[in-house]
Structures are given as C-alpha cells and as structure tokens.
Design a protein around this nucleic acid. Structure first.
Lengths: 227, 227
DNA sequence: CGTTCTGTTGAATACCTTCAATTCGCGTGG
DNA sequence: CCACGCGAATTGAAGGTATTCAACAGAACG
C-alpha cells in the first residue's frame, strides 16, 4: 500500500539523500488506522509527532457539549502534532483517521537523531510551522469575521484552485465539511441549497460544479448572500 | 527608555552570550511608534520580522466591513510577524502600536547572520512558533465552540493566573478586549454587566476583582450562564 | 432487502449584532 | 477650579444568522 516514492514527496524531508530516506523508512515505526479510529486525544501525553503516509486524518477539538471543530484535514506527506515536540508535553487537540491511513511516528529522540544527521530538517520544520500559522490566521479570520456562505465560497474556490478545475470533489463528508467551516450539518445543508438554487454551483453528492465563479468570488470577498 | 536587560529577557535569544547580545543591540535598527500608529498592514511586502522591546502592539485582521479581530496582543520581549521569514513574502495580518512602543527589526539577511552565529536561535524560534500554534488552537476553539461569556471567563482566569491575584487589570480597553474575544463592545458590555450583577466579579473601569472563582471556572469549562 | 449512517427540511429559539441614543470618564483650556 | 469636548462605554429596541430539536428522505453497505 505504501509507495516508496511517497517518502520522497514529504516536505519535511526535502533535501535528504536517497540513502537517508531509505534509512528513515527502515528505522521509524508505522501504524495503520481504519476510518473512525482515534490516533490521540487532547490532553494525552505526547512523546513525538506523526507523518501521514497514506490516507486522511482530521485534527479537531471537541466542546464539552460534543460539538466538533476540525482544525486541519491532513493529507499524505503532511506531518501532524509537531507542536508536541517543541513546547508541549500533551496534545493540544485530537486526531482521528477518516480514511484507512498509514502513519509514521517520530519520537523526540528519533527526531533529534534526524536533526543531527541533517540540520536542514530544522529549517524545513520552521517553514511547515509557518505555513500552519498562516493557515490558522485565516481560520480565525473566517470564524470571526465571515458568515457561513462566505466561508463556503472561499473553500470551494480554494478547492477549484487546487484541482485546476471548476468541477471539484469535496473529499470529505458534508458533515465533516460543516465542522471544518465552523458550523453544523443542518446549517451547511440549508446554505448549500440556497447557493445552488441561485446558480452558484451544481451539487451531485460530494461533487460540486462551479457555475458562477464570479459570484462565488464576490461572496468570498465579503459580499452578502442575497436570498 | 530601553533597559538593556530587556534584551537578555527575550526568549528568542535565550542562550546567547552577553557579547552576542551587545553586538545585537548595536547592529539591528529600532523604531518607535506612538499609540494608534500602524506598523504594517496585511498584504504588504514582508522582508523580516520584529521584536517588541517596550510597549504593546496588537496584531489583527480586518473584515471588508471594518470589523476587527485581534489575533494577538504582543508584550515586551515577544517577536511578531515571524511567519514572514519562512513561508511568506507578505504579512498575513496587520500590526498597530496600542501604547508608545519600541521595536527592533530583523531583516531576512540579518536573521540568517544571527543563525550562523548561533544555531540555537533556530530551536528557540521553533519553540516560539509552537507556542503560537497552540495559542491559535485555543483561539479557534474559543471562537467556534464557546459563547462570549465562556470566552470572557477563560480570559479573566488566565489573567488572574498570570498575575497571581484575583484582582487583575485588563491592560487593554474594553473595545480591544471585545475584538480579542471575537465580539463587539456592546455585546461585551452587556455580558460584563450581567456577570458582575451575578457576583462573579466586580468591575471598576479596567480593574476587575474576581469574586467567585468557582463560578468563573464552571463557565470556562462550558457551563451556561444563567440569566 | 433491511439496517445504518448521511443528508435534508421545518419550526422554534438563542445568541449576537446593528443602529441609535445616552452616559461616563478624563484631559484640556478657559 | 470648573466647564467643555471628545472618545470610550453603556443601554435599549429591533433584526438577522445560526443552532436546536425533531422528523424524514436517501445512499451505502452488508
């Protein structure tokens, strides 16, 4: 299931030699998790971080009443829980596989060994943390300053940008999308109905075809949704 | 105005020798900003980062309609806009002095020079970015999963913890506090009235005396505010 | 073909915001 | 020393957006 070239595509290891990568693959332990399996929970003691090799993982927070806010959808090649390495001894959020996933674990010691081998990893890590900070900056902005239609428009345009097509696939369930956008399935459902009724896009299950990119852009820029 | 020992207290430079610190003070430029002065705005080209030596700075986002969300209140010794160094060429947010402030500027090149001098700075930077990520994690949680009374309770308890006293000073205006908590002055005002009417705390301008720590804790943990 | 999970829809409600009007606090100048 | 003026803070009434709770439809899966 694991393609070896998956390793070479991991941003954190950019710049490492093939020999170093081979060493890596042999040295560090991997685990598999089926969809719905919890990888760690908030407050649990953290002794290292993970890299997702294949599959999909969500990192999320739970409120006391059970509402979920997804902080991040992790895709192949991305590290997660890196924060645990540098400033924390416990995980600040939960993580759960949402597809059959394969992950690699790096203990504190193991990472230190890596860094001694090749200090460029530290710089890569800085770049990754910076990107994450920028991402959170946008998440906070969305949650605090935008309404749900605006957030959805932003997200759809982001997907379209990524795939280079106006026909995109939410790669997650609508329930999960609601949680990622900081709302609940009912609200998202209503808003998607409204928006598709207005011809902004067409919706067939998880496939979305953007019909009016212009109007979506206006929404993303803060325009109100006329109902 | 600048105390030299302020430099030695900067976390980013922990571990540097006095000689290195002196060098630093001589080498890098400083600027002063009066309250209300904008230091940089979102989207502006970014060529380095800052460390606040004295005063207070807010880092914030603006919505198209002009609503403000404060991402961070920066205090003396803290760096800001570090993200610009590693993954971005433009600032992802705005910064403005909210008190008379003195800041030090580190260009990309200057920072590289520092790192060559003493690589431990990179590890310090990792720790700082990690802390910031954890902070944002909590901010997102607050905005998405908690209501305003809960956010306020959390914040007050945080202040009390920090000062080691149940008599605390919001060091910012209530308007700014509202923006930090992701709401508006009117809403915050109403909620503070209600909470003080219930004996949770006493309020004299910017001074708050916590009267019922227990009830505040319950709120912070997710309990509803009974009106 | 039934069970289960996901998604949709409706009605009632809660929370927060908006807009407008006052009041308060405080520094300044007469 | 007092009065003025300005920004910050407060209060009220109305409105809007999102949530809650409940019921139902639909798709996926065994």
């Amino acid at each position: 299931m694991l393609k070896e070239n998956a390793i070479t595509a991991i941003p954190l290891f950019r710049g490492l030699s093939q020999k170093q990568l081979d060493e890596l693959v042999r040295t560090f332990p991997r685990q598999r998790h089926g969809p719905g399996e919890v990888i760690f929970t908030e407050g649990e003691e953290a002794n290292g971080f993970y890299i997702l090799l294949a599959g999909m993982v969500k990192v999320y927070k739970l409120s006391p009443e059970g509402k979920e806010q997804i902080l991040h959808i992790i895709g192949p090649g991305e590290p997660f829980a890196e924060v645990a390495l540098f400033s924390e001894t416990v995980f600040p959020a939960c993580a759960e596989a949402i597809q059959e996933s394969e992950i690699m674990f790096f203990s504190r010691k193991g990472f230190q060994r890596l860094v001694q081998d090749d200090p460029s990893i530290v710089m890569n890590m800085l770049a990754i943390l910076s990107q994450r900070l920028k991402y959170f900056t946008r998440l906070v902005e969305d949650l605090s300053l935008k309404e749900v239609p605006q957030r959805l428009a932003t997200y759809l345009l982001f997907l379209a940008e990524n795939e280079g097509s106006s026909d995109v696939s939410l790669r997650i369930s609508k329930g999960q999308l609601a949680s990622l956008l900081g709302t609940i399935p009912e609200t998202l459902s209503r808003i998607m109905s409204k928006m598709s009724a207005q011809g902004l896009f067409e919706m067939r299950g998880r496939r979305i075809t953007i019909l009016n990119r212009r109007a979506l852009g206006d929404l993303a820029a803060g325009q109100k949704l006329v109902l």
